[in-house]
Simulated scan of single mutants.
Amino acid sequence: MIVEPLQLTVSAAFAGLNAGSAISADQIDAAEKRLGLALPEALKDYYLVAGGYPEMMEKDFHLFSPEKLRIEGDYLVFCEESQGGAVWGIHRNNLLTLPNPRVEGRAGNAQKWFSESSKLSAFLLGIGAWQALLSQEETARCELPEKQLKKIEAQFDYIGERSLRLGGHRVGLIYRDAAAPLIAAYLFNSEMLYVGTPEEGLIERIEELSGLDFEWL
């Protein structure tokens, strides 16, 4: 479902680097047997493509490895905030009936769950790009009202088909020039564009081309 866009994210963020201890299909199968349910295709894809890169699993969001997936009430919990302030999961009914289920969140020790993303694929593609850019040597951000997103479409491509990437709070982008490695994430709730690159001077070049005004992080 999201193998190709995840591969695009990984290749842009970690070019020339080999994955560490990758997550195997056997680990996924064992988790399904332990939990007594089938994991969504998008989550399996994330494990198989990005699971070998610690930055993709544990940077700002901590995605649980298959062995640490757990059931809380009616939810399969698969992700938590790095500081443990929130967790994200999928309701059992949606796991059983939807190929690309909704993601819900729960803050701290609260009992009530809230809607986070209408599609698991959008949640995973968004945080995958976010984790990848935060791992880069140079990172920056700028304000960009959503109605002005078209302003950067000449330099950037979205990560994933529209039907898979939309529905969450963030979306990933890749700089169109393959020789200039840069990955980005746009946050709809704050209307901020974040970028990350290992290449010195690239962000300044993009500022000149796009007219954006970045603040270094």
Rank of each mutant, 00 (worst) to 15 (best):
K68Y: 01
K68A: 13
R70V: 10
R70C: 07
I71H: 10
E72N: 06
G73L: 06
G73Y: 13
G73M: 15
Y75N: 04
V77C: 09
F78Q: 02
F78R: 03
F78V: 00
E80W: 00
S82T: 11
S82P: 03
G85Y: 14
G85F: 04
A86W: 01
A86M: 11
V87F: 07
V87E: 06
V87A: 09
H91A: 13
N93F: 04
L96S: 03
T97C: 11
T97N: 15
T97E: 09
L98V: 12
L98M: 13
P99H: 10
P99E: 13
N100L: 15
N100G: 11
N100K: 11
P101H: 09
P101N: 02
E104L: 14
G105M: 00
G105A: 12
G105F: 01
R106A: 00
R106D: 04
R106T: 05
A107E: 15
G108P: 00
N109T: 07
A110P: 00
Q111N: 10
W113S: 06
F114W: 07
F114M: 03
E116S: 04
S117L: 03
S118Y: 04
L120Y: 11
A122E: 01
A122L: 07
F123A: 01
F123T: 01
L124D: 06
L125K: 10
G126L: 09
I127D: 07
A129S: 04
W130A: 13
Q131I: 03
A132S: 09
L133C: 02
L134C: 05
L134K: 12
Q136D: 10
Q136A: 05
Q136W: 04
E137Q: 12
E137P: 08
E138L: 14
A140E: 12
C142N: 05
C142W: 10
C142D: 04
E143M: 13
L144M: 15
K147Y: 13
Q148Y: 13
K150N: 04
K150S: 08
K151E: 14
I152C: 01
I152E: 05
A154C: 02
A154N: 09
F156K: 00
D157S: 12
D157A: 13
Y158C: 01
I159S: 07
G160Q: 03
G160W: 00
E161A: 15
R162N: 11
R162A: 13
L164D: 14
L166E: 06
H169Q: 15
R170W: 02
R170D: 08
R170N: 10
V171Y: 00
L173R: 04
L173S: 09
Y175W: 14
R176W: 08
R176Y: 06
A178D: 04
P181L: 11
P181E: 15
L182Q: 10
L182V: 11
I183Y: 01
I183D: 05
L187S: 10
F188Q: 02
N189Y: 03
S190L: 13
E191G: 07
E191K: 01
M192P: 01
M192R: 05
Y194Q: 02
Y194M: 12
Y194G: 02
P198L: 09
P198Y: 12
P198F: 08
E199S: 11
E199H: 04
E199D: 08
